[in-house]
């Protein structure tokens, strides 16, 4: 089995990242925004793994593990916050939740 070309891997990572961005920008439900963020994080992780495979260096994999942990922690905190927000405002629409304006 010939290895997946390096470029293909990166292109997939790029597509995933862009999808994530589009998700963050366009979704109004905060849960989906969080999920899109996860997609973006995973896109980064994929890029690291592809790089690690290309140069035969374990640093990439180590970094992926780190991103994984980070994402898990982030989701835990994020979901917690979302639940709190939902309880307080009874909505998860980010356009309604505009209390951060200066």
């Amino acid at each position: 089995m010939s290895p997946i070309p390096f470029e293909h891997g990166l292109i997939v990572a790029g597509i995933l990242f862009c999808l994530g961005i589009v998700g963050v920008l366009t979704r109004r439900n905060i849960v989906f925004v969080l999920m899109s963020l996860e997609v973006m994080l995973n896109a980064c992780g994929l890029a690291f793994i592809v790089g690690a495979a290309r140069w035969g260096n374990a640093d990439g994999q180590v970094m992926f593990l780190m991103i994984l942990t980070l994402a898990a922690a982030e989701v835990a905190v994020g979901l917690g916050l979302i639940i709190q927000i939902y309880r307080r405002f009874h909505t998860v629409d980010i356009n309604v939740l505009s209390q951060m304006k200066g």
Binding site: S98, M100, G102
Partner: peptide, 17 residues
Amino acid sequence: LAKLQNGMLGWYAASLI
């Protein structure tokens, strides 16, 4: 400048990007 800070998360993310 104050208008930019409108509290819209999407708007912030877009400007970030």
